Deep mutational scan, measured.
Amino acid sequence: NKFNKELGWATWEIFNLPNLNGVQVKAFIDSLRDDPSQSANLLAEAKKLNDAQA
């Protein structure tokens, strides 16, 4: 379904953000699993944090 596809894509993108540490990645992935409907918002937050830590 739509959420599974978005969840998978967001998970892959978060895993590939180079400036996040393992704890941050795990926290974002756990949040995605808790509420897949928020995948776009969580991915945006992860990208912002990644950019801030560059």
Rank of each mutant, 00 (worst) to 15 (best):
E13N: 03
W9V: 09
N41A: 13
G8F: 15
F15W: 08
S39C: 14
K26D: 03
L32P: 00
A52T: 08
K48F: 08
K2G: 13
G22F: 13
L43W: 04
E13D: 04
A44G: 04
D35C: 12
Q24P: 00
N1R: 06
S31I: 10
K47H: 11
N21D: 12
A40Q: 10
L17R: 00
D35H: 09
N1T: 06
V23N: 12
K47W: 05
K26A: 10
E6Q: 04
S37N: 11
P36N: 02
K48W: 05
G22I: 12
F3V: 12
F3A: 15
K48N: 05
N50M: 01
A10G: 05
E45V: 08
L42K: 08
K48G: 06
Q24D: 02
V23E: 11
L17Q: 02
L20A: 00
K26S: 06
K26E: 06
N19D: 03
K48S: 08
W9F: 09
S31R: 14
K2R: 12
P36M: 05
P18S: 08
Q53R: 04
S39Y: 10
R33C: 15
V25N: 01
D35K: 09
N21W: 10
A52F: 07
D34E: 14
K26H: 09
A10N: 03
Q24G: 00
L20Y: 00
W9L: 13
A40S: 09
S31F: 09
W12F: 10
N16M: 09
D51W: 06
Q24K: 00
S39V: 14
I14Q: 03
A27Q: 10
K2W: 14
A40M: 11
I14T: 02
Q38W: 03
N16W: 07
L43D: 01
E45D: 12
G22Y: 13
S31W: 10
D51K: 10
E6C: 15
E13L: 12
A54W: 06
K2S: 13
D35T: 07
K47R: 13
A54L: 08
S31V: 07
G8I: 15
N1V: 06
E45P: 00
I29T: 03
N19H: 12
N1M: 04
D51Q: 08
A46D: 00
E6A: 07
R33E: 08
N4G: 12
F28N: 00
N19G: 03
K26G: 04
L43C: 03
T11F: 15
K26I: 08
L49W: 03
Q24I: 04
A54H: 08
N1Q: 09
A54R: 09
Q53C: 13
E6W: 10
N21F: 07
F28K: 00
A27G: 08
S39W: 15
E45W: 05
Q38H: 04
N50T: 01
N16C: 14
S37Q: 06
L32A: 03
L7T: 06
V25C: 10
P36C: 08
L43E: 01
P36R: 02
K2E: 12
L7S: 05
A27S: 12
F15A: 14
D51S: 08
E13H: 05
L32G: 00
E45F: 06
A54G: 11
G22M: 13
V25M: 07
V25R: 11
D34F: 10
F28Y: 05
K48E: 07
L49M: 08
N16F: 07
L17A: 01
R33F: 13
K48T: 05
S37D: 06
N41R: 11
A44P: 01
N50Q: 02
K47N: 04
N16R: 05
N1F: 03
L20W: 01
L17S: 01
A27C: 14
D51R: 12
Q24E: 02
D35G: 02
Q38D: 07
F28L: 04
F3Y: 08
F15D: 05
N50P: 00
S37M: 06
L17W: 03
W12R: 10
L32W: 04
E13T: 06
A10K: 04
A52Y: 08
K5R: 05
N1W: 01
L42N: 01
A27H: 13
W12T: 14
T11D: 10
I29A: 03
Q24N: 01
V23Y: 14
K2I: 14
A10V: 15
W12Y: 10
N41M: 11
A46S: 02
L43H: 02
F3L: 12
T11M: 15
L42H: 03
A54C: 12
N4C: 15
D30C: 12
V23T: 11
P36T: 03
F3M: 13
N41C: 12
L17T: 01
P18A: 08
Q53P: 02
G8T: 10
G8M: 15
L17E: 01
A44D: 09
G8H: 13
D30N: 08
L42M: 04
R33S: 06
A27E: 08
L43M: 04
N50Y: 02
S31H: 07
D35P: 00
K48Q: 09
S39T: 12
N1A: 05
K26M: 12
L20M: 01
A52Q: 10
I14A: 02
K48D: 04
A46R: 00
A52M: 10
Q53V: 06
Q24R: 00
I14V: 05
W12V: 12
L42G: 01
S39F: 10
R33D: 03
N50K: 01
Q38T: 05
E45H: 07
L17Y: 04
D34Y: 11
A27K: 14
A54Y: 07
N41E: 12
L32M: 10
A44M: 09
N19S: 04
L17P: 00
E45G: 04
L17K: 00
R33M: 15
E45N: 04
D30V: 06
K47M: 08
S37C: 11
L17V: 01
D51H: 07
